[in-house]
Design a protein around this nucleic acid. Structure first.
Lengths: 162, 162
DNA sequence: ATAAATGCAAAGCATTTGCAGTAAA
DNA sequence: TTTACTGCAAATGCTTTGCATTTAT
């Protein structure tokens, strides 16, 4: 089932499906790439390259991490995948490319999507002559699980994030 | 001159100034650390470790990058410095720890601060039981300089960011 | 047949760590 | 004097690159 459009045709492609689209770009749709596309499509876990690799290397013995990175870079460059920089130590990928926001649990680092549009207008005096084209909000908080755990253990670690 | 409080006492410290504060924590205020504090205080350029190192290594021949990282980690852990993950390839630091937002030029990557509070309420249906404690907004756009340049060269590169 | 993609290994960076010497306190 | 900090170099971890071989088209 189709969830984020990753397996559908690209905006400019003449025919539907990923195979034709890739072919028209002079790119080849290999089994590895198709597996990555399928793994990512509709995935809301915001996986990093390593996790994608781990999830697929069972089915593809000898799959290379370089191939995963290669495919992710192509998808990202074509705007079919968002590269999240939320995690300072590794890049995470999000197949949901429609503008949306993130809700990050300060304790377990889980990232949830918020599909909602907020009307944000920067006061002119603060806009400094910039032309604003978009925004991306990170909400911080505690997920239900960690809220429960915090109550049980009474308190917890300090985190310096909004 | 004092700008972001980095040279002032910590919330819990009994005496003013950075020296006493560090001493009370069992930490030593070395010339290197003081130089880093002074460089960062009021700095709105969101520098990375390497840039701080480059700026100070003239005055401190033999200054170590490890010392810069060490000091940044201490300040970050004590909540006196924000570690920005906006740039996927290196961490940037912001001495402004009061909640604020960022305005990023998609072309030159310059980061400006937006000191303004936006009232953001996530619709209950989308809140998924999370307890929200804060938010951080990244605005994307073009700075005045790049806007001018784009007009001159007619168009420019594509960037897949909001 | 022809390009492009693959896997592997090596290289590249940013960041961290280990440690003997140095300097705040 | 004591203990933390320093610089250096080595190590780590994520990501990228080079290249000979394989594979989609």
């Amino acid at each position: 089932m189709e969830k984020t459009g990753l397996l559908q045709k690209e905006p400019g492609a003449k025919e539907p499906g990923p195979a034709r689209t890739w072919r028209e770009l002079g790119l080849k749709l290999t089994p590895q790439r198709l597996a990555i596309l399928e793994y990512l499509d509709g995935n809301t876990a915001h996986p990093a390259a390593e996790e994608i690799f781990a999830a697929l290397s069972g089915r593809f013995p000898g799959l290379s991490l370089a191939t995963v990175y290669n495919t992710l870079a192509i998808l990202r460059d074509r705007g079919r995948l968002l590269e999240l920089t939320i995690d300072p130590s590794k890049r995470r990928y999000d197949p949901q490319v429609k503008p949306h926001h993130h809700l990050i649990c300060l304790s377990c680092k889980r990232i949830a999507d918020i599909e909602h549009t907020f009307a944000l207008e920067i006061p002119g005096a603060l806009r400094m002559g910039y032309e604003i084209t978009g925004n991306q909000i990170e909400f911080y908080g505690l997920c239900p699980d960690c809220k429960k755990r915090a109550k049980r253990t009474g308190g917890g670690g300090h985190v310096h994030r909004p």
